[in-house]
Design a protein around this nucleic acid. Structure first.
Lengths: 230, 230
DNA sequence: ACATTCATTTTTGTATACAAAAATGAAACA
DNA sequence: TGTTTCATTTTTGTATACAAAAATGAATGT
């Protein structure tokens, strides 16, 4: 009998896509940093062919910019890029929310509520890393509850570009508390299957997030300028 | 002096992406068809390296599906895929419309109006090919008037997958007339800078398009089943 | 006739080789 | 000191070579 269950190992270039995406999203490859093919080949212990295929994939996803004859660099979003990206994310999340309110199952709702309480625990302990992780998971689950794979894929691709921006970040305590209140409201709207309310809170939630991120970008920008001036 | 104006020729794999995308979108490579690397290399007169890089790019765009160790095939959308894709497109177009209503310039509006009349001419002559072309241009221009490059890029990527479906198609005369009336309303809303009205008409316009496409898919499906039965 | 096995061919996936463009840096010069 | 030139090195882009997986199809058995 054929072993219909054993899954073949993923292809090299696919593994490389995943690993590189993590490096980019977690900022281990800094925005604007050049991707040197030889160096990455050594680091990942692969040849240039699968590496270059992975780079093309990530370029299509918008995580990398290709400079003809000069290789590739990690995207560096301008403030305007961030604004534009948040607008699209908000659009997609609002739609996710509207659909999720119609289509979510009781089991999915239970799971999201559990994640919500886990997130509250991290918030109580002021564990930012943990909070971000759960926060991302909840947004992802709402998206999945919409049961539209195209929406999920589009959301993931656009969202990935922002991840690097949101990762390291001290946060304004007041905005943090406000974000948590947003999440309470999301849960209420989901439970009530109130799509309009969920869309609305998601949009304003993302506006807050956007402002936090923009403030951080400006702060970093300022520090860099001072370093140059000194 | 350096010639800052001469633009170097685009890289091979970029050209291949463009050419392949056209072949896919125009249905010259049929949905579900296998992409044989050797054959395509000969046809495009290139080696496998740039071809494979192009394939990876188009896979990330969702026009191609990669089958590990078995190459790549042109995507074949199920009816549900088409529904899901139209939902996302409608979401993105609605947002484009809302933003465009706020941000469109007088010059852009004039140009869209001109395109609209060109489209009416094609409609009057029952020239479907010409009509589709102008129709796509108008939607694209509205999107551009929103002045959000991330939105534009996302819209283009998702929309590309539908192009192949919409290309060949006889159309229900009544739905066609209805679509043209939608366009009249779009122009009115744009002129009045009424974002809500524009979003609303775009959404219902796309629902109509979706139903037309789904009907066609079912019709084609039926024919194929009969062929198999015979 | 139909299914199964297995050697052969084809196709895909990865590594390497070669060519062309860009970056580097020392020498020459103002 | 600063900048310009140009040979050298490095890096990118493309082609080819090699390895492994999948497809093919004839031979075998039921």
């Amino acid at each position: 009998m054929d072993d219909l269950l054993t899954i073949p190992p993923p292809l090299l270039h696919q593994q490389v896509v995943t690993r590189l995406r993590n490096l980019l999203v977690q900022g281990e490859i800094a925005p604007g940093a050049k991707l040197n093919e030889r160096a990455l080949c050594e680091q990942l212990a692969i040849s240039r062919t699968p590496l270059r295929e992975a780079i093309k994939t990530l370029a299509a996803e918008g995580l990398i910019v290709l400079l003809p004859n000069r290789g590739a660099i990690a995207v560096m979003l301008t403030e305007q890029d961030a604004r534009d990206t948040f607008d699209v994310i908000a659009t997609l999340e609002a739609r996710s929310g509207a659909l999720a309110a119609q289509r979510i199952t009781e089991a999915e709702l239970v799971e999201i509520r559990a994640l919500h309480y886990e997130m509250l625990a991290h918030h109580a302990r002021r564990n930012l890393q943990g909070y971000y992780h759960l926060n991302a998971l909840i947004h992802e689950r709402i998206n999945l509850a919409a049961k539209n794979p195209v929406l999920t894929q589009t959301y993931r691709a656009v969202n990935a570009r922002l991840q690097a921006l949101r990762f390291r970040s001290n946060v304004d305590e007041e905005k943090w508390d406000s974000a948590v209140r947003d999440h309470e409201e999301m849960l209420r709207a989901l439970t009530a299957r109130d799509g309009d309310a969920l869309s609305a809170v998601l949009i304003s939630h993302l506006e807050t997030k956007r402002d936090v991120v923009l403030a951080q970008m400006r702060a970093i920008e300022t520090v860099e300028e001072e370093n140059h001036g000194a």
